[in-house]
Amino acid sequence: MRQFDRGEIHARLRAVMDRGEPIVMGGAGIGLVAKAAERGGIDILMAYNTGPFRMAGHGSLAGYLAYGDANAMTLELGREILNAVDDTPVVGGIGAADPFRDIGRLIGEMMDLGFSGITNVPTTGLYDGKFRAHIDATKLGYPREIDLIRMCRDRDVFTVAYAFSTDEARAMAEAGADIIGAHVGLTSGGWIGAAATLDIDRACEATQAMLEAARAGRADVLVVAHGGPFEDPESVRSVFERTDVVGYLGASSIERLPVERAVSGVVRDFKALRPRATRTAG
């Protein structure tokens, strides 16, 4: 495990971009995925409560229902992930609406554990409509996440902020987020992915709009693509070609989808073998 300070992470990201490579960031809900992602050259690992649900075979959305203490889960996941990697910054999620913890102290606890940065997950940006209006009215909403990012920036803690609209992207850039993840909805694909997402054209437009809003808020903010139809390298190629993002942040696409495919495929291959002992049976 190595903990990186904010300057070190920026120097590494600068080098990646100078080589013409994308910044690739990925969620890890178990240590094995973190290790494999590091071997593949991931630039930043993301650890938050949706990961363990994903890797337990449930949808990421399970991390948005009331069946677990999200921040306790992320602290537990940190103990697992941080020791599984050698030389990769790990950013941990904080659910800023937690009514049972002081967020300032939680940032300290996460950094003491060895995280190299903080992100706003679980985020209220995933809720919308009447329920979102209700949680905003009861002060559990997105403004607390903006405060979280600002608090981290004041302490020189590296941050990745998920934003779902141009207003949120701009506000997060102004609050000092180092990277904005332009979130275009729950990731599609696989067995339990989102039922309906934006098509690639509209997702690219939404991504570019958030990017421009973020840069209007602070010119040097880095913006990466995330979610919706951007579920594999082919779809991500289009967002790299059609927008000014400098990279991609994948969670389901980095761990759930490849594991679903790889494990079911290899089991199928084993099942396709025919043992000599049973070959003539029947």
Binding site: A66, D69, A70, F131, I135, L140
Partner: peptide
């Protein structure tokens, strides 16, 4: 806030 019954901070 009762909205907590619909958010991920508790079992």
């Amino acid at each position: 806030p009762t909205a907590l019954a619909f958010m991920p901070y508790d079992d």
